[in-house]
């Protein structure tokens, strides 16, 4: 692969890595359940771009787009279910603070 293409790939990869670090940081440090989900979303954003990037660099954009679309559909369903669970926890605790979750034991 040409060095130009490699550089293109690397610059995009660095940006993706930074977005994902931000998402992971959010997931690890927050006590708010919704913010944890937002962190997960950021991670998924990075992932989507990575797949599209891999497709673009190799010229397989058809497959990469098909993968990204499937990924987006699954992401939405997952988020709906996760939000449903968060709302349930809120109804019990009147809070979405993870510190109120009692069973943090392994």
């Amino acid at each position: 692969m040409s060095s130009e293409l490699a550089q293109f790939f690397w610059v995009f990869s660095i940006a993706i890595a930074l977005v994902m670090i931000a998402g992971f940081y959010c997931l690890l440090l927050t006590y708010n359940l919704i913010r944890a989900l937002i962190g997960l979303e950021l991670l998924t954003k990075g992932m989507t771009l990575f797949i599209i990037l891999a497709g673009y660099v190799t010229g397989h954009t058809g497959l990469a787009q098909a993968m990204a679309i499937t990924l987006i559909v699954i992401e939405v369903v997952l988020m709906v279910v996760a939000v449903g669970v968060v709302l349930g926890i809120f109804r019990h605790n009147r809070s979405i603070d993870a510190r109120l979750i009692r069973n943090i034991k392994g």
Partner: peptide, 14 residues
């Protein structure tokens, strides 16, 4: 939809 089940599910989801 009891609290334990929801918490278990949330941890599993994440």
């Amino acid at each position: 939809r009891d609290l334990n089940a929801l918490e278990g599910a949330f941890k599993y989801i994440v």
